[in-house]
């Protein structure tokens, strides 16, 4: 059975090994344990009444929405993990809870960059969490207007995290911005144009450049190419793949699109109605999905 022996499928222990990830990760940069997010009023039975087996994230008794529950994974440097699932399955919720955009209901998230992983960042105060976003952890959103100020130039958008990190030299900001924009293949003659005048693909490249400004160790990508047309998306994907390899980043890629997950990630977890139903190596999952939902998802993607 080889590696398959280590695979974990919700509801049954395939090889007697149940843990945060199918393969233990050496020196994880990002560790997520028991992450959960519930909207509305829940009670002791809410968790049992929701999830993939129950067929809904909504508790029929209390009306609470269990957007995500019991999510566990680890990511090491130079590794990318995918979170795949249909719309509403909770994958973006997980990412936003890690990033600090949303307040998690439960769980334990550790970054090796924050107090050497000795502290659960979910318990840190909002100011501390915002500071982590300056140089430890960056997010690339599906909608560039979430990650960029559209009325500001491409260079100015990169100046923001740089000045937040204390850079006070105009020349150094220009230099770093040019460097990042060249790397993300944004023509340098557009550095001083406002981002609103950029195409979708170009905005996404600027957003990636900005996310990398202070060399974070962790990059969270939320549907980074959704909304771009196929050829542009392919270019952005190539760029992201190159960057992940080159910069030794620990990355989490959220997507409903298997081609994105396949191209960028080594491992992935499948979410359905707020729960992780399967976690596996990406190519294995695509070849031989175990959970019925994963099977449906893969066959739909392969059709």
């Amino acid at each position: 059975m080889g590696l398959q022996r280590h695979r974990m499928v919700q509801g049954q222990e395939v090889a007697g090994m149940r843990g945060p990830s199918p393969i233990p990760t050496p020196d994880p940069v990002l560790t997520v344990n028991g992450l959960g997010k519930i909207y509305g009023r829940d009670d002791a039975g809410t968790i049992d009444r929701t999830g993939s087996d129950a067929g809904s994230a909504r508790d029929p008794i209390t009306g609470a929405i269990v957007a995500a529950w019991d999510v566990n994974f680890e990511v090491a440097a130079g590794e990318a993990i995918g979170i795949v699932g249909e719309s509403g399955s909770g994958k973006s919720t997980v990412l936003r809870c890690i990033a600090g955009d949303l307040e998690a209901t439960s769980g334990d998230v550790r970054l090796s960059t924050h107090m050497e992983g000795r502290s659960n960042v979910l318990l840190a105060d909002p100011a501390t969490r915002r500071r982590m976003r300056i140089d430890q952890l960056s997010v690339v959103y599906q909608d560039p207007s979430e990650g960029l100020a559209l009325s500001v130039t491409a260079g100015g958008n990169i100046a923001d995290p740089l000045t937040a990190a204390g850079v006070r030299s105009f020349a150094k900001i220009r230099e770093r911005a040019s460097e990042l924009l060249s790397r993300t293949e944004v023509p340098l003659n557009r550095m001083d144009d406002i981002v609103r005048n950029f195409s979708g693909g170009m905005r996404q490249r600027v957003q990636i450049a900005r996310a990398l400004a202070n060399k974070p160790r962790i990059l969270l990508l939320d549907e980074p190419t959704t909304g771009l047309d196929a050829s542009v998306a392919a270019g952005v994907l190539d760029l992201i793949r190159g960057l992940l390899e080159e910069l030794d980043l620990a990355a989490v890629v959220v997507s409903h699109d298997f081609s994105v997950i396949e191209m960028l990630t080594n491992r992935c977890i499948v979410m359905h109605h707020g729960r992780v139903v399967e976690s596996a190596l990406t190519d294995q999952l695509l070849e031989d999905p175990h959970h019925p939902y994963s099977q449906r998802l893969v066959s739909a993607a392969r059709a």
């Binding site: 915002r130 100020a149 500001v152 130039t153 260079g155 100015g156 958008n157 100046a159 923001d160 995290p161 000045t163 937040a164 006070r168 105009f170 900001i173 001083d192």
Partner: peptide
């Protein structure tokens, strides 16, 4: 958190 102030100075200069 004054980075956006710095951005506005940067934009002005650019």
């Amino acid at each position: 958190d004054y980075s956006r102030m710095w951005v506005s100075l940067y934009e002005d200069k650019v």
